[in-house]
Design a protein around this nucleic acid. Structure first.
Length: 247
DNA sequence: CCGGTTGTTCAGCG
DNA sequence: GCGCTGAACAACCG
């Protein structure tokens, strides 16, 4: 369920609850939403920041993070033990196996929207500046850094690196300026491709590197690393066409 | 039954 | 306080 584009889809799907009053709240979250008086308040907006799904109320927001296994359903409860269940006059929102937090105060004080690769205000120059401060960082780790590329997950990471022909263990500081620009540009571009493919239920079909075994460019077997970089995530890359840049 | 995963946080240590 | 490591958590699939 994770990765930024999936959250953007969720945000679109719950639009019918925007402006509506939460009539009832329940679920097994440890956050005391009932005691906090969430029932009775109106949803002012739904927002997303990277992989965070935000239910904005007056003066506060419920922050949902689906981690690896989280999921949701609309109107029908499809799984046992919802973490959060919001009941509206015109339907229901069920959130399962997610992390829940209550953010107090203006939502804008909690988030830098320009760091979200899917956001209208995404600022590639800021990303570049942050990357400049981490020359030793591996390209694979940098792409997963939510302070720089909020919303990018492991699939997007692998696909972006394949697209721009960069080895995941390349160091950021060793990338030629043009390559660095490509990395930043494709982190956003691929996220929007991901969004469209996911909406069409054909995401996997478009994977060129992630979970694949042969490079579609030159038929060479992909290298598969189980725990690559400091974030120790799965990596798939072509030893032939993805260049290793080292300082 | 076991191993693996589109992710993050926190305790424990040096 | 920092950086690193491993554990913990969660649900489902093959």
């Amino acid at each position: 369920m994770p990765e930024g584009p999936s959250i953007v889809i969720l945000k679109e799907q719950v639009q019918k609850f925007k402006g509506k009053k939460i009539l009832e709240v329940s679920g097994n979250t440890k956050v005391d939403l009932v005691g906090a008086g969430v029932a009775g308040s109106k949803v002012l907006d739904f927002k997303s920041w990277g992989k965070h799904f935000l239910i904005v109320l007056k003066g506060r927001a419920i922050r949902i993070h689906f981690l690896l296994f989280g999921s949701y359903s609309l109107d029908e409860q499809t799984k046992p033990r919802p973490r959060v269940h919001l009941h509206f006059k015109n339907g229901d929102l069920f959130l399962y196996a997610c992390s829940v937090k209550l953010l107090e105060g203006d939502i804008d004080t909690h988030y830098d929207w320009t760091a979200d690769v899917m956001n209208d205000t995404w600022d590639p120059r800021k990303a570049r500046k942050k990357l400049k401060d981490k020359p030793d960082e591996l390209a694979a780790d940098a792409l997963l850094d939510q302070d720089i590329f909020a919303g990018v997950g492991n699939i997007i990471k692998n696909e972006v690196l394949f697209r721009i022909r960069v080895h995941p263990e390349s160091q950021i500081g060793a990338l030629p300026p043009r390559k660095l620009s490509e990395l930043i540009r494709e982190a956003r571009n691929y996220s929007f491709d991901f969004l469209e493919w996911k909406k069409a239920f054909e995401l996997r079909k478009h994977w060129l590197a992630h979970a694949k075994s042969i490079c579609p460019r030159d038929n060479v077997p992909f290298v598969k690393v189980k725990h690559l970089g400091k974030r120790k995530r799965r990596a798939f890359f072509c030893p032939k066409c993805q260049k290793l840049y080292i300082l």
